[in-house]
Amino acid sequence: MSAADQVLVAEGFTPPGPGDFELPAVFGDSLLFTKPALLLVLAAVLVFGFFLVTSRKMAMVPSKAQYAGEEAYSFVRNGIARDIIGSSDFIRFVPLLVALFFFILINNVFGIVPFIQFPSFSRVSFAYALAGLVWVLYNGVGIWKHGLFGYLKHVTVPGGIGGPILLLIIPLEFFSTVIVRPATLALRLFANMFAGHLLLILFTLGAEYLVFEAGKAAYTPVGVLAFLMAIAISFLELLVQFLQAYVFTLLTAMYISGALAEEH
């Protein structure tokens, strides 16, 4: 693959790069009217629209639409919130977790929806925003539950370890809970979406170039193969998009649960 790439670069193929993620504004100059920003709003509208339609008329025996809405809602409510946070406290976090999962999921799936084909969270700012919100939330919940110093102790002193080594471990614990968590949360989501989109652009542009522009008949089958690979990667991406939404929501629930826990 890389050898072929280098040959192509030499002949005039421009490989895709981070520049492909800096899309121009849709209207005028405003940063608020770029494609990713509009997709973000569209995803929120879709998520809320879906749940509003499916939950408006609730019946004891659900219709098909209501059943779909219930299943989607219960997947996060029971499968993530209740199982991780526990049945006494989880209900307060259900709206956040439901919104988080479906908002990220729809934004991710935009990456392979025809004519949209851009995963919003390949813009790192969006991932930073959600991770920052989660960080404020779980630390706030911990401080509310244990008090500021109680929470700092809760976060930095692991149970069952004593002696002088604790002095070395306290900064490590603090770092990994307070600083590493939000960073990995944001970067995991961003990097998966960014890399997946880059891979798709690479294969589709490469296939186009090989078939139509390279000018050598021998490249055509390779180009077709690259295009087939792009289709296969799209399906792989669908899995990754779902998993990243799931992992982000699951980790959020685990951080909240950890902040609420009585002991380590």
Binding site: L172, E173, F174, F175, S176, T177, I179, V180, T184, G258
Partner: peptide
Amino acid sequence: MAFGYPIGGAAFYG
């Protein structure tokens, strides 16, 4: 979760 400790350790002591 366990993933965070080595990163935190490397970041802080590094």
